[in-house]
Amino acid sequence: MSDSDKYPDDSGRRRFVKGVVGGAALAGVGTTGAAAINSATTSPGAGGGPTQAYAIENTAGPAPRGMPQIPIEIDSDGFIKGVWPEVKTVTQNGIDIKIAETDDYKGSGVTYSSAWFQYCGVQSYGGLAPDYESDNYFRADSGGYDWQKDAYSAGDKLNIEDFGDYKEWGNGIGRDGLGKPATGTWRSQDAEDTMPIQILRSERIEEAAQDNDWLAASTDQGVIAWLNKCTHFCCVPGYKQASDAAKFNAEDGVYCQCHQSVYDPFSIVQTLFTALPRPD
């Protein structure tokens, strides 16, 4: 792993939902501002460079920014999938390359791109290739929670019916009733590398989505998802998974035990960073 992967560049971030009690208007940061912030660190190559993304907010610890959100959909059978952006061909430095990018995602005004996930070495994962063949469903991993180990085997698709008690769920860490989580993988079947994800179904997300265009477009039935790679040292954090999280006021957040970075899954922010290029 290169030093640029281990030590992501500091980035600006603007909140547009805080605590998700109601939703503020989508904060706008133009591409000119993004280029100015990242002008010294722009990465050449396929799909790299200044990137504006939406993330669960980093609130404490050394992580430079939040972890990127994955828009989700729930099919007619209740299975939950991460939405992959539209694959298109563009010319970059005189060379035609494929990228995955959707303009004005579901009318939200947001450009959603696979570049959101190009950090911590993920940019070289097979599943991040724009045209990687995948059904995009979230699949259970070995299970970060007791309930999940009872409900799923590794590789099973996550289903909304198994989150029915999300308004009451608790596991003895922090407050009960904030939401029900699960851990899993995305676009990783038959791939050498695994993209870890975390999802959370919460009444607070449902409420916020009622008056926020981005959350209305990117969440469904209170389910929110993010790529579960800490932006500090690329570890895999957890929501209500560490018994010592309370020492760092993180018992109700997403906590990375490696270096005590903390993220708030109920605060979605806009981030600016330099996405690392995919291998040509």
Rank of each mutant, 00 (worst) to 15 (best):
L215W: 01
G170M: 06
E168W: 12
D165R: 02
Q189P: 03
G179P: 06
L178V: 08
Q210P: 01
A191D: 13
E168Y: 12
I205T: 11
M195I: 14
R187D: 13
D165N: 13
G184E: 11
D162M: 14
G177R: 03
N212C: 09
D190M: 14
G179R: 00
G174P: 03
I205N: 00
E203Y: 08
R187A: 04
T219P: 08
D213R: 12
W169G: 07
W186E: 08
D176V: 02
I197Q: 10
W226V: 11
N171A: 04
M195G: 02
E203W: 07
Q198Y: 04
L178R: 09
R201E: 10
A216F: 13
F163G: 01
L200K: 00
G164W: 07
Y152A: 03
T194R: 13
S188P: 08
G177H: 02
G155C: 12
D150S: 14
Q189K: 12
Y152V: 08
D150A: 14
D190I: 12
I224F: 00
S188F: 09
T185I: 13
Q189M: 11
Y152L: 06
S153W: 04
R187P: 14
G170A: 06
G172H: 11
Q210W: 04
W226R: 08
W169C: 06
K157P: 05
P196S: 09
F163S: 01
I199V: 10
Q189R: 12
Q198L: 07
G170L: 06
D162W: 11
D156C: 09
D150Y: 10
N159P: 03
Q221C: 05
G164I: 06
I173D: 09
R175V: 14
A208I: 07
D193T: 15
A209F: 01
I224D: 01
D176L: 02
A208Y: 00
Q189W: 09
R204G: 01
E192I: 15
A191W: 02
M195Q: 10
P196C: 08
N171T: 10
A151T: 14
E192G: 12
R201L: 04
L158N: 04
P196N: 10
A209T: 04
D176I: 04
D220A: 14
A217H: 03
G172M: 13
I160C: 02
S153A: 10
K167F: 03
I199C: 00
T183S: 06
P196V: 09
G184S: 06
M195K: 05
A209S: 13
D220T: 14
G172Q: 15
Q210G: 07
F163W: 11
E203Q: 14
I197T: 13
D165G: 04
T185E: 13
E161L: 10
D176C: 02
W226N: 05
